[in-house]
Protein backbone atom coordinates (compact mmCIF):
# COMPACT_ATOMS: atom_id res chain seq x y z
CA UNK A 1 0.00 0.00 0.00
CA UNK A 2 1.77 3.14 -1.23
CA UNK A 3 1.82 6.27 0.87
CA UNK A 4 -0.71 8.97 0.08
CA UNK A 5 0.74 11.69 -2.21
CA UNK A 6 0.04 14.32 0.42
CA UNK A 7 2.22 12.39 2.89
CA UNK A 8 5.00 11.98 0.30
CA UNK A 9 4.95 15.73 -0.20
CA UNK A 10 4.96 16.43 3.52
CA UNK A 11 7.95 14.14 4.16
CA UNK A 12 9.89 15.65 1.23
CA UNK A 13 9.16 19.15 2.51
CA UNK A 14 10.30 18.22 6.02
CA UNK A 15 13.64 17.01 4.60
CA UNK A 16 13.95 20.15 2.47
CA UNK A 17 13.30 22.40 5.47
CA UNK A 18 15.85 20.44 7.55
CA UNK A 19 18.39 20.79 4.72
CA UNK A 20 17.81 24.55 4.50
CA UNK A 21 17.95 25.01 8.27
CA UNK A 22 20.92 22.63 8.76
CA UNK A 23 18.92 20.64 11.26
CA UNK A 24 17.63 17.10 11.62
CA UNK A 25 14.24 15.43 11.82
CA UNK A 26 13.04 12.23 13.49
CA UNK A 27 13.33 9.05 11.37
CA UNK A 28 10.52 8.79 8.81
CA UNK A 29 9.97 5.05 9.18
CA UNK A 30 8.25 5.41 12.56
CA UNK A 31 6.09 8.37 11.55
CA UNK A 32 4.86 7.35 8.10
CA UNK A 33 3.26 3.96 8.60
CA UNK A 34 3.86 1.46 5.82
CA UNK A 35 6.58 3.57 4.10
CA UNK A 36 8.49 1.37 1.64
CA UNK A 37 11.48 1.93 -0.67
CA UNK A 38 9.31 3.08 -3.58
CA UNK A 39 7.70 5.68 -1.33
CA UNK A 40 11.16 6.71 -0.15
CA UNK A 41 12.32 7.41 -3.72
CA UNK A 42 9.18 9.50 -4.27
CA UNK A 43 9.98 11.47 -1.12
CA UNK A 44 13.55 11.94 -2.40
CA UNK A 45 12.09 13.24 -5.68
CA UNK A 46 10.01 15.82 -3.79
CA UNK A 47 13.01 16.82 -1.62
CA UNK A 48 15.28 17.24 -4.65
CA UNK A 49 12.61 19.00 -6.78
CA UNK A 50 12.47 21.66 -4.09
CA UNK A 51 16.27 22.00 -4.23
CA UNK A 52 16.30 22.23 -8.02
CA UNK A 53 13.63 24.94 -7.74
CA UNK A 54 16.08 27.17 -5.85
CA UNK A 55 18.72 26.85 -8.55
CA UNK A 56 20.65 23.65 -7.85
CA UNK A 57 21.42 21.63 -11.01
CA UNK A 58 21.78 17.86 -11.27
CA UNK A 59 25.41 16.99 -12.15
CA UNK A 60 25.36 13.25 -11.47
CA UNK A 61 24.36 10.44 -9.13
CA UNK A 62 25.74 8.74 -6.05
CA UNK A 63 25.45 5.07 -5.24
CA UNK A 64 25.20 4.12 -1.57
CA UNK A 65 24.81 1.02 0.60
CA UNK A 66 27.21 -0.89 -1.66
CA UNK A 67 29.16 -2.91 0.89
CA UNK A 68 28.01 -6.18 2.40
CA UNK A 69 28.67 -4.82 5.90
CA UNK A 70 26.43 -1.76 5.44
CA UNK A 71 23.73 -3.79 3.65
CA UNK A 72 23.61 -6.21 6.57
CA UNK A 73 23.52 -3.31 9.04
CA UNK A 74 20.44 -1.73 7.51
CA UNK A 75 18.85 -4.95 6.30
CA UNK A 76 18.84 -4.65 2.49
CA UNK A 77 20.43 -6.59 -0.34
CA UNK A 78 20.92 -3.92 -2.96
CA UNK A 79 22.44 -0.45 -3.15
CA UNK A 80 20.54 2.84 -3.23
CA UNK A 81 21.12 6.09 -5.09
CA UNK A 82 20.76 9.85 -4.77
CA UNK A 83 21.34 12.92 -6.92
CA UNK A 84 24.48 15.05 -7.00
CA UNK A 85 23.88 18.74 -7.54
CA UNK A 86 26.01 21.69 -8.56
CA UNK A 87 26.25 23.11 -5.01
CA UNK A 88 27.74 19.90 -3.61
CA UNK A 89 31.01 19.97 -5.53
CA UNK A 90 34.14 21.05 -3.64
CA UNK A 91 37.47 21.38 -5.47
CA UNK A 92 40.32 18.96 -4.76
CA UNK A 93 42.52 20.20 -1.92
CA UNK A 94 40.05 22.72 -0.54
CA UNK A 95 38.55 23.16 2.88
CA UNK A 96 34.91 22.15 3.40
CA UNK A 97 32.83 24.54 5.49
CA UNK A 98 31.51 22.43 8.35
CA UNK A 99 28.87 25.08 9.05
CA UNK A 100 27.00 23.86 5.95
CA UNK A 101 26.89 20.29 7.19
CA UNK A 102 25.13 18.67 10.13
CA UNK A 103 26.86 15.40 11.07
CA UNK A 104 29.43 14.80 8.32
CA UNK A 105 31.37 11.59 7.69
CA UNK A 106 33.86 10.96 4.90
CA UNK A 107 33.87 8.08 2.42
CA UNK A 108 36.68 7.47 -0.07
CA UNK A 109 35.40 6.25 -3.42
CA UNK A 110 36.08 5.85 -7.11
CA UNK A 111 34.17 8.40 -9.23
CA UNK A 112 33.18 7.75 -12.86
CA UNK A 113 32.59 10.45 -15.46
CA UNK A 114 30.51 9.29 -18.43
CA UNK A 115 31.22 10.19 -22.05
CA UNK A 116 28.11 8.41 -23.38
CA UNK A 117 24.56 7.97 -22.11
CA UNK A 118 23.88 4.68 -20.32
CA UNK A 119 20.38 3.45 -21.01
CA UNK A 120 19.27 0.54 -18.85
CA UNK A 121 17.96 -2.04 -18.35
CA UNK A 122 20.38 -4.57 -19.82
CA UNK A 123 23.55 -2.57 -19.04
CA UNK A 124 26.60 -4.71 -18.18
CA UNK A 125 29.99 -3.89 -16.64
CA UNK A 126 31.41 -3.97 -20.19
CA UNK A 127 28.96 -1.24 -21.25
CA UNK A 128 30.06 0.84 -18.27
CA UNK A 129 33.72 0.52 -19.34
CA UNK A 130 32.80 1.59 -22.88
CA UNK A 131 30.72 4.57 -21.75
CA UNK A 132 33.19 5.90 -19.15
CA UNK A 133 35.44 8.82 -20.03
CA UNK A 134 37.59 8.55 -16.91
CA UNK A 135 37.70 7.53 -13.26
CA UNK A 136 39.05 9.60 -10.36
CA UNK A 137 39.71 9.25 -6.65
CA UNK A 138 37.07 11.09 -4.67
CA UNK A 139 35.68 11.84 -1.24
CA UNK A 140 32.00 11.86 -0.59
CA UNK A 141 31.19 13.71 2.59
CA UNK A 142 27.93 12.08 3.59
CA UNK A 143 25.57 13.85 5.94
CA UNK A 144 22.19 12.93 7.38
CA UNK A 145 19.15 15.08 7.89
CA UNK A 146 17.87 12.32 10.22
CA UNK A 147 18.49 12.56 13.99
CA UNK A 148 21.79 10.95 15.00
CA UNK A 149 22.16 8.94 11.74
CA UNK A 150 19.38 6.67 13.07
CA UNK A 151 18.56 5.38 9.58
CA UNK A 152 17.00 2.40 7.88
CA UNK A 153 16.84 2.10 4.12
CA UNK A 154 13.62 4.18 3.79
CA UNK A 155 15.12 7.07 5.77
CA UNK A 156 18.37 7.30 3.82
CA UNK A 157 16.74 6.88 0.40
CA UNK A 158 14.24 9.68 1.17
CA UNK A 159 17.14 11.84 2.41
CA UNK A 160 18.86 11.72 -1.02
CA UNK A 161 20.97 8.74 0.04
CA UNK A 162 22.51 10.85 2.85
CA UNK A 163 24.56 12.89 0.39
CA UNK A 164 26.35 16.00 1.66
CA UNK A 165 29.15 17.29 -0.57
CA UNK A 166 31.80 15.64 -2.74
CA UNK A 167 35.37 16.26 -3.83
CA UNK A 168 36.81 14.91 -7.10
CA UNK A 169 40.57 14.31 -7.25
CA UNK A 170 42.41 16.06 -10.05
CA UNK A 171 44.03 12.91 -11.49
CA UNK A 172 41.96 11.35 -14.28
CA UNK A 173 42.56 7.80 -15.49
CA UNK A 174 41.07 5.83 -18.38
CA UNK A 175 39.22 2.85 -16.83
CA UNK A 176 40.80 0.59 -19.48
CA UNK A 177 44.16 1.22 -17.83
CA UNK A 178 43.37 0.04 -14.31
CA UNK A 179 42.01 -3.04 -12.52
CA UNK A 180 39.19 -1.37 -10.58
CA UNK A 181 38.38 -4.56 -8.64
CA UNK A 182 41.88 -4.67 -7.12
CA UNK A 183 42.50 -0.92 -6.76
CA UNK A 184 43.76 -0.46 -3.19
CA UNK A 185 42.86 2.54 -1.05
CA UNK A 186 44.83 4.18 1.75
CA UNK A 187 43.30 7.15 3.62
CA UNK A 188 45.52 9.29 5.79
CA UNK A 189 44.03 11.64 8.38
CA UNK A 190 46.27 14.47 9.54
CA UNK A 191 49.26 12.58 8.11
CA UNK A 192 48.52 9.24 9.81
CA UNK A 193 47.09 6.17 8.05
CA UNK A 194 43.47 5.78 9.17
CA UNK A 195 41.57 3.51 6.77
CA UNK A 196 42.14 1.15 3.87
CA UNK A 197 40.06 -0.74 1.38
CA UNK A 198 39.83 -2.15 -2.10
CA UNK A 199 37.57 -1.81 -5.15
CA UNK A 200 36.06 -5.29 -4.67
CA UNK A 201 34.34 -3.98 -1.50
CA UNK A 202 31.87 -2.18 -3.81
CA UNK A 203 29.53 -4.85 -5.23
CA UNK A 204 32.49 -7.03 -6.19
CA UNK A 205 33.67 -4.24 -8.51
CA UNK A 206 32.74 -0.55 -8.80
CA UNK A 207 31.76 -1.35 -12.43
CA UNK A 208 28.98 -3.62 -11.13
CA UNK A 209 27.66 -0.79 -8.96
CA UNK A 210 27.49 1.61 -11.92
CA UNK A 211 25.79 -1.06 -14.07
CA UNK A 212 23.25 -1.58 -11.26
CA UNK A 213 22.57 2.16 -11.23
CA UNK A 214 22.12 2.33 -15.02
CA UNK A 215 19.64 -0.54 -14.91
CA UNK A 216 17.75 0.86 -11.93
CA UNK A 217 17.47 4.31 -13.54
CA UNK A 218 16.38 2.67 -16.80
CA UNK A 219 13.54 0.89 -15.02
CA UNK A 220 12.47 4.15 -13.38
CA UNK A 221 12.67 6.06 -16.68
CA UNK A 222 15.29 8.44 -15.25
CA UNK A 223 18.06 9.81 -17.50
CA UNK A 224 21.73 8.81 -17.14
CA UNK A 225 23.68 11.12 -19.42
CA UNK A 226 27.13 11.72 -20.87
CA UNK A 227 29.00 14.16 -18.65
CA UNK A 228 27.43 12.95 -15.40
CA UNK A 229 29.59 12.16 -12.38
CA UNK A 230 28.87 8.89 -10.54
CA UNK A 231 30.16 8.22 -7.06
CA UNK A 232 30.29 4.43 -7.07
CA UNK A 233 30.28 3.63 -3.33
CA UNK A 234 32.62 3.63 -0.35
CA UNK A 235 35.73 1.42 -0.36
CA UNK A 236 36.26 1.74 3.40
CA UNK A 237 34.21 2.31 6.57
CA UNK A 238 32.90 5.84 7.22
CA UNK A 239 35.33 8.29 8.80
CA UNK A 240 33.86 10.91 11.20
CA UNK A 241 35.46 14.35 10.64
CA UNK A 242 35.75 17.53 12.69
CA UNK A 243 37.21 21.03 12.57
CA UNK A 244 40.92 20.92 11.83
CA UNK A 245 40.99 17.50 10.15
CA UNK A 246 42.56 16.98 6.76
CA UNK A 247 42.18 13.80 4.72
CA UNK A 248 44.00 12.42 1.73
CA UNK A 249 42.96 9.32 -0.19
CA UNK A 250 45.40 7.43 -2.41
CA UNK A 251 43.86 4.90 -4.79
CA UNK A 252 46.20 2.48 -6.58
CA UNK A 253 46.46 3.10 -10.32
CA UNK A 254 44.08 6.07 -10.14
CA UNK A 255 45.45 8.94 -8.04
CA UNK A 256 44.80 11.02 -4.95
CA UNK A 257 42.17 13.36 -3.56
CA UNK A 258 42.42 15.62 -0.52
CA UNK A 259 40.08 17.69 1.59
CA UNK A 260 40.16 19.71 4.80
CA UNK A 261 37.42 20.59 7.28
CA UNK A 262 36.85 23.84 9.17
CA UNK A 263 34.07 25.86 10.71
CA UNK A 264 33.61 29.20 8.96
CA UNK A 265 36.73 31.26 8.17
CA UNK A 266 39.12 29.00 6.24
CA UNK A 267 36.36 27.25 4.29
CA UNK A 268 36.77 27.30 0.55
CA UNK A 269 40.46 28.17 0.72
CA UNK A 270 43.12 25.83 -0.60
CA UNK A 271 44.77 23.63 2.01
CA UNK A 272 48.13 25.36 1.97
CA UNK A 273 50.51 24.61 4.81
CA UNK A 274 49.67 28.05 6.24
CA UNK A 275 45.94 27.32 6.12
CA UNK A 276 46.54 23.94 7.76
CA UNK A 277 48.51 25.64 10.54
CA UNK A 278 45.72 28.15 11.16
CA UNK A 279 43.07 25.44 11.20
CA UNK A 280 45.18 23.35 13.55
CA UNK A 281 45.62 26.30 15.92
CA UNK A 282 41.91 26.88 16.14
CA UNK A 283 41.01 23.20 16.27
CA UNK A 284 39.08 22.27 19.36
CA UNK A 285 38.41 25.96 20.14
Amino acid sequence: MALDPALIERAGDELYDAYRANSTIAPLRDRFEGIDIVDAYRIQERFMDRRLAIGEDVVGKKIGVTSKAVQEMIGVFEPDFGLLTSVMEVEDGRVVDLDRLIQPRAEAEIAFVLKEDLNGPGVTATDVLRATDHVRACFEIVDSRIDGWDIRIQDTVADNASCGVFVLGEDKVDPRDVDLTLAGLLVEMNGEPCADGVGAAVQGSPLNAVAWLANTLGRLGMPFRAGEVILSGSLAPLIPVKHGDSLIAHIGGIGSCSVGFANGGAAGFPMTDAARAIIKETAGA
Binding site: G184, L186, D196, G197, V198, A200, A201, G204, H250
Partner: peptide, 12 residues
Protein backbone atom coordinates in the same frame (compact mmCIF):
# COMPACT_ATOMS: atom_id res chain seq x y z
CA UNK B 1 35.65 -13.36 -0.82
CA UNK B 2 36.55 -13.56 2.86
CA UNK B 3 39.02 -10.70 3.33
CA UNK B 4 40.10 -7.53 1.57
CA UNK B 5 42.76 -4.93 2.25
CA UNK B 6 45.16 -2.45 0.79
CA UNK B 7 48.89 -2.96 1.39
CA UNK B 8 48.89 0.39 3.24
CA UNK B 9 46.99 -1.33 6.08
CA UNK B 10 50.48 -2.22 7.31
CA UNK B 11 51.68 0.98 9.01
CA UNK B 12 50.67 3.07 5.97
Amino acid sequence: IVAMASSGAVLG
